[in-house]
Amino acid sequence: MEILIIIISAIFVNNIVLTQFLGICPFLGVSTKVDTAMGMAAAVCFVMAISTLVTYLLQYYILVPLGIEFMQTLTFILVIAALVQMIEIILKKISPALYKALGIFLPLITTNCCVLGVAIMVVSKEFAFGGEAHMLNLGESVLYSVAMAMGFGVALILFAGIREQLELSNVPKAFKGVPIALVTAGILALAFMGFSGLV
């Protein structure tokens, strides 16, 4: 039951893009086609799960015991950057097919703030999913990050679908490009507000 609450709250109620404003750059950048949006969503999900796992261990087994939590930002971003590179190399070797599908999105992910954002979020915030507020354990952290990434995917794919339609419509000249995308995102955010209070 709690697992279900975590997933629903992460995907819809606290949608990472539309209510928390993380990962806006790829959201606006790679969302012109549904295919690329799906590829990006899958890559983010993959990287986010692994990086949350690693940074969680880093936080509780290295930074906290040594009393150097203030190094969090520095170590997390380095680990994430290195991890993305490593995933790219490993994927290239063992699964060329997957690499072909996700490869071009991987370098973009290092600067995607939702990866670092979620990594920091799970180790610094107390969560209350129906029960007492508590810090997440390892399993919940990874689950939460995957759910967050799914929320990113849902928003991205929905948005890409709308933008594909938008290509065909007649947009005022000053609104072409980013502004109309922002207006669309605003309307989508309005729709997602309807989910608030669900959990």
């Binding site: 606290n14 915030k125 209350a128 007492e132 507020a133 608030s196």
Partner: peptide, 9 residues
């Protein structure tokens, strides 16, 4: 404290 807030503690 309470965890019955609309969005958290």
């Amino acid at each position: 404290n309470t965890n019955r807030g609309f969005s958290g503690t």
